[in-house]
Design a protein around this nucleic acid. Structure first.
Lengths: 211, 211
DNA sequence: ATCTACATACCGACTGGTTGGTATGGTGTC
DNA sequence: GACACCATACCAACCAGTCGGTATGTAGAT
C-alpha cells in the first residue's frame, strides 16, 4: 500500500516507473521456486503487482525478461566481492575462506531463499533457448572470474598442487554450491548443502596447507 | 495402419506390451533435456512411439509417470555398484576411487548424454509436487547409501578427519556431480564437469592420505 | 478344438482450461 | 499534446486429461 487508504484498499498501486525492476525481482523469486518453463508470465506479473501491459512494454518476450534477469542477478552478486568485511583481510587465503564461510552462512532457512536463479534457470532452458544459456554462462563466468584473483594470490603465497589453476578451483567452488542447491531441493532442507560446503572448506584448507 | 506395407511403412509399430517401458525411457530422455514442466505428455508419447491412450492406460497422470521414472532411474543405477570391474578390488579406497573414476569417464560427449534425470527433475518440481520431490529424495538417498559402505571401510582402514561420516562424504560426491551437471549445461560442454570431479578425486585422496 | 466371456493393451479425436503474446485504450508527466 | 507508461480485453496455440472404441490375448466350458 503506497497510497493512503482507509479500509483495505484493493490493488495497492505500485509507484510508476518501477515496473521493470519489480518484474525482474519477481522473475528471480518465481523462477527460483519453479524453474523457467513452469513459471508463467501471468505469475510474474501478479508477483510484481503489475499487469501484462507493463510486462510487454518493458520486455519483448518472456525470454527477453529471462536474459535481463540473468544480467541483473550478476549485478546483484557483485557486492559479495567488494562490500563484505572479509574482503578487507590481508591474507588472500583468509579472503577466500571468508568468502566460502559467507556462502555457507547463507545456507539457512527455506530452500527458495538461498538457491541460485542462474543454476535453476539453465537446467530447463539450456536446450531450448540459446540466449538464455549464454546469459547463464556469462553470469557463472563473471562469478568465477571475480573469485579467481584471491585464489591466484593464495596459490602464489602458499603453493598449490600441480596442474591446478585459479579458475579451475573457482569453478569447483561454484560447482559444489550448485550441487548443494540441487540436493537441498531433494530433501527440502538446507543442512545437506551446508555439509557439502563444509567438505569444500576442508578441501581448500588442505590444498593450501592450512590446518 | 497395422497391415502389411510394401513401400516405407510409416509408423514402425512398436511391440505390444512394451509401451510402459518405452514411456519411462522417453521420459528420462526428454526430461533430462528440458526439465519436467517443459516436457509435454505428447512429446513423451511421440518419443516413445505410442499414443496418449497408451500413456493414460499405464499412468494415472504425468506426475505418476514422473514418480515411476524416478524409481526406474534408481534401478538403472544399481549395476554401477555391483557389476563393474572396480567393485571387485580388495581395497575399499580403491573401490571408492574406482567409482569416482567411472563417473568421471561418463562425462564425455553431449550434455544430454550424462546429466541426471533426478537432479534435473527435482529442480523444477520440488516446490510443485511433493510426490515427485519424495521420489527424487529417495533416489539420491539410495545412491548415497550404496556408496557409503566402501567409504566406511576406507575410513576404518585409513582413518578420516574428525566429524566426517561416510554418508556425509557420499552426499558430497553426489553434490559435486550434480553441480558439475549444472555447470556443464551453462557451457554446453562436459569439460567443466570433469574439472570438478578431478578436484573431488584429489580431495578424497588427501582425506585418506593417498598421494 | 472351438466358442463364449472377459481382461488387458492400445488408439486418436475431443474438451475445458491455460499460455505467451497482441491490440487498443487510458493516464500521468514533461 | 506528445510521449512513456501501464491497464484491459482478447486471441490463437497448446496443454493435460477424457472417452468411446478397437485389437489382442486367455481361461473355462463344452
Amino acid at each position: 500500500m503506497t497510497t493512503t487508504h482507509s479500509s483495505s484498499g484493493p490493488p495497492a498501486r505500485t509507484p510508476r516507473g518501477s515496473a521493470r525492476a519489480r518484474l525482474i525481482a519477481a522473475a528471480h523469486q518465481e523462477v527460483r521456486r519453479q524453474g523457467y518453463a513452469a513459471t508463467t508470465v501471468d505469475q510474474i506479473c501478479t508477483a510484481a503487482g503489475v499487469t501484462k501491459g507493463a510486462f510487454f512494454h518493458h520486455f519483448e518476450s518472456k525470454e527477453a525478461l529471462a536474459v535481463a534477469a540473468a544480467e541483473a542477478w550478476t549485478e546483484r552478486a557483485r557486492p559479495m566481492f567488494d562490500m563484505l568485511p572479509h574482503t578487507r583481510l590481508e591474507d588472500p587465503l583468509d579472503r577466500l575462506l571468508g568468502h566460502i564461510d559467507f556462502r555457507f552462512s547463507l545456507l539457512h532457512g527455506p530452500v527458495d531463499g538461498f538457491t541460485c536463479f542462474i543454476g535453476t534457470m539453465v537446467q530447463d532452458a539450456y536446450a531450448t533457448s540459446e540466449p538464455i544459456r549464454l546469459a547463464c554462462e556469462a553470469s557463472i563466468a563473471a562469478y568465477c572470474e571475480a573469485l579467481a584473483p584471491d585464489i591466484e594470490a593464495a596459490m602464489d603465497a602458499y603453493g598449490a598442487p600441480d596442474g591446478m589453476t585459479a579458475l579451475d578451483l573457482a569453478r569447483h567452488i561454484q560447482s559444489v554450491l550448485q550441487g548443494g542447491f540441487v540436493l537441498a531441493k531433494t530433501t527440502n532442507d538446507s543442512a545437506i548443502a551446508r555439509e557439502s560446503v563444509a567438505h569444500l572448506t576442508r578441501y581448500v584448507r588442505m590444498i593450501f596447507g592450512r590446518t
